[in-house]
């Protein structure tokens, strides 16, 4: 229908009728225009909805073809780490082992041990062992009589399920493997330290040797060959446990099932895969 068919519209619009306007026929009615708009909008919306569905489908297929996961074990491996703070004696063997295994420069740590001292007067003192040997005894001495209770808390990367550090990486150098291990691609990293700021647990740092972000990898080069992380292997008290939490028969799954488990800063919703036994409200 053209406007020229309408009575009284002849004089105003028929002059432009035959000019080649290219895109739109100027004589198109408002009704047709709205109808076209509705059609285009619907088509566009459907297309935009469909794209993420295809992308998700591609992701899902990838999980099944992952050779280190499903094919080897019959189920997808998901690694987890458990720290039983009631067993830790603060010897720092884990810190030294980690440093040697991963070439971490002096003064930088992928894992460390904190000591929480609760005094009888209600105050709390927190020490950090940054030497790995007799550092706790080198600190200002504590009068045993004034202490109500005291314990050690080993800290390391929490390998969160929803990771703030990966989200902020501008070059895709931080990533999470299918087994749930959060790693840094040291060749891709530009050392902007955005992830160091983003980590709520303070487990990332800029390695002064490589000038890239660095963090605990759960000794990915050992666990991929069926070994335990260095810190778990050397721990003399069994404080640290590592394993596949998707395997109900693994040591860690059994311990997780039998104990009351907590994670650090659960209110942040990062869903850490490093779990703890024996935390108190003061441990963050």
């Amino acid at each position: 229908m053209s406007c020229c068919d309408k009575k009284g519209a002849k004089d105003t619009c028929c002059e432009t009728k035959h000019e080649p306007t290219g895109v739109m026929d100027a004589s198109e009615s408002r009704r047709e225009f709205i109808w076209d708009a509705v059609k285009n909008f619907t088509f566009g919306a459907l297309t935009l909805t469909a794209i993420p569905i295809f992308i998700e489908k591609a992701d899902a297929e990838e999980v099944h073809t992952d050779k280190d996961g499903k094919e080897k074990t019959g189920h997808t491996v998901l690694f987890g780490y458990l720290v039983d703070t009631t067993k830790c004696i603060g010897c720092g063997g884990c810190m030294l082992a980690c440093k040697k295994e991963n070439d971490v420069p002096d003064g930088e740590f992928r894992t460390w041990v904190e000591r929480y001292v609760y005094y009888k007067d209600g105050s709390v003192r927190v020490d950090v062992n940054l030497k790995g040997s007799f550092a706790f005894t080198e600190l200002p001495p504590i009068d045993k009589e004034t202490v109500e209770k005291s314990f050690f808390v080993p800290k390391l990367c929490n390998h969160c399920t929803d990771t703030p550090c990966i989200q902020v990486c501008p070059v895709g150098a931080s990533f999470k493997t299918k087994e749930g291990v959060v790693l840094v691609d040291y060749e891709q990293c530009i050392g902007c330290a955005y992830c160091v700021q983003a980590c709520p647990f303070g487990t990332r740092f800029i390695n002064t040797k490589t000038q890239t972000a660095d963090k605990c990898t759960w000794c990915y080069h050992r666990i991929q060959h069926g070994e335990k992380p260095a810190c778990v292997d050397v721990c003399p008290t069994g404080t640290r446990t590592f394993g596949d939490i998707n395997d109900p028969e693994s040591e860690i799954s059994k311990t997780l099932a039998e104990n009351r488990i907590d994670v650090l800063k659960s209110y942040l919703g990062t869903r850490p895969k490093t779990r703890y036994i024996g935390l108190t409200a003061e441990v963050v």
Partner: peptide
């Protein structure tokens, strides 16, 4: 494998 360099996995494994 995802939004990262696939080769980085092999490098991490071969350390």
């Amino acid at each position: 494998f995802g939004h990262y360099r696939g080769a980085a996995l092999q490098i991490a494994t071969d350390k």
